[in-house]
Design a protein around this nucleic acid. Sequence first.
DNA 1: CTGTTAGCGCTTTCAC
DNA 2: GTGAAAGCGCTAACAG
Lengths: 325, 325
Amino acid sequence: MRDVAAMAHVSAMTVSRVLHNDPRITEMTKQRVLNAIEELGYRRDETARNLRLGRSAGLIGLVVPNLANPFYSQFALGAGETAEKFGINLVLANTAEDPRREIRLVDDLISRRVDGLIVVPADNDHRHLDPVKLHHLPLVLAARPPVGVEADCVLVDDFGGTREAIRLLIARGHTKIGFLGLPPSAYTGAERLRGFRAAMDEAGLPVDEQYVHYHQRDIATAEQATRALLALPDPPTALFSANSRNTIGTIRAVNNTGASTVLAGFDDFELADMLGLPLIVVAYDPGDVGQRAANLLIDRLNEDDNPSPPRRGVVPTSVVEYGDQ
Amino acid sequence: MRDVAAMAHVSAMTVSRVLHNDPRITEMTKQRVLNAIEELGYRRDETARNLRLGRSAGLIGLVVPNLANPFYSQFALGAGETAEKFGINLVLANTAEDPRREIRLVDDLISRRVDGLIVVPADNDHRHLDPVKLHHLPLVLAARPPVGVEADCVLVDDFGGTREAIRLLIARGHTKIGFLGLPPSAYTGAERLRGFRAAMDEAGLPVDEQYVHYHQRDIATAEQATRALLALPDPPTALFSANSRNTIGTIRAVNNTGASTVLAGFDDFELADMLGLPLIVVAYDPGDVGQRAANLLIDRLNEDDNPSPPRRGVVPTSVVEYGDQ
DNA sequence: CTGTTAGCGCTTTCAC
DNA sequence: GTGAAAGCGCTAACAG
């Protein structure tokens, strides 16, 4: 900036004013300054500017468990779109589902003076997201509600979506319905299981506990669990799986064993309609989750000093049927 | 920091020294300072620190066309993993395939004083990536080589991978092979087309130009183009598509028309093996592309003042067959 | 209209 | 062992 000022024979202040489009600057000096800027390839240092202005860098930390999962990449995209509208950039941190990494990454983001954090926690333990440890930075959780800390959050209608899908299976005449779940210690796992039980309950159907399998985290274990279910003397006629990884596992098992089990699952996914078998999915827009999370956070950033109580958004789901039922 | 200093009855300088583990500080003062830090929940402002130290923030700008595409999300993940090893964070920018947005976003990242840029350009026009406009920031391009600017880059073996796949189709007895391409103005489009022609040439097979369609950018147009090819009086017996969006379009067309055309395409994708038809794909690791890009950039960041010539990496491909051939 | 001064939060240098 | 001064690049406030 001093170089520009020197070249244009003005003070640094004038350069600063030109950059602000201060109307009091003469057209002529302005041109001289702009020429010098062009000549030297000068760019204002936003970091120093922000330091002086007392505001911070216009950065939001986005902490996700696994960007290779389409849910999280679409989520990040949605959050980024919204942030960009407000001139805010996203700093990305991938925890690889490791709570220890999450703690480190959150800490690091805070030291880098991000303005706020959007976190999809890898775990149920949110102590590292305590406002004090967070330096009282605004925090929004996504996909899981805060446990033991106050924070805004955006959830998916895990319970309602699952209940709706199970209701549809029941309306189709199924009474023996299996459930392939995530660990119920995780919020989404518990909610989806609760939706399953609620739909069965309200139809007066008993839940056969041997049809309920937890702890499938990937496609391979889901396929294996499905095979076990199908090998039962009296196997279920329909199967609901708690996320798309599980659903893909069930599809593999059904395709490979030639069973006629009707499949349903949480999460929509690409090519779900091309697999040559009927499939019911609970669909929602992951980008919307990201957008809402970013909006909640930005509202907090613009908030004056008296904080409003935590807010919570719920993204709706819809039941989609693929293939001939 | 001044608050901490006041509370510990020392100067700001002493606080700074404690944070640096300066050995000359008495154990007692050190404890007083640490207590004050704890009490006030103080954290050093890395931004101000970096300003004073003249170095920048440990941030790399990552500019991709579309994070919803699994290629780019895995790419981002790979780059992030490598960057993290060096204590560097990623600032994410999604151009939505819009060159104008790319220009804006790159500009913005530079003003925020990122240390370097990794860009997957949306376009062939790289003038906005000129070293001068870039403030001489290190730049690595991925998936496309630099045009008119000097920069390191990481490419995929578009040519070799495609040629290999076409060779396989020819070995399977196909002579009438169609090609569904990206616009050949794009590097990847041109290279993949070149690989197609090379394999046909070396087998002495003529390329029937009515079998070659360009400009398919999404699933719908690819499906439509495929239908047109299949409706020819003498349709091709095999079809190669230039990326996974196109391949999915061809699969839809073939499934819906019941044609027996053999399909092949660039890019592997999830569930490719579950579609109930034989399929040949050119596979590679997008995460590896990201890792290499980050490594090239970090090498530049650590480089002393005499710059080495631009480097170029090529990620290998392999041909994978799904289903019964 | 433009320049000077002071200070954002930190650290390097030099003094004590 | 600790403190004071100066300055990283920028701008708000006050002069002129």
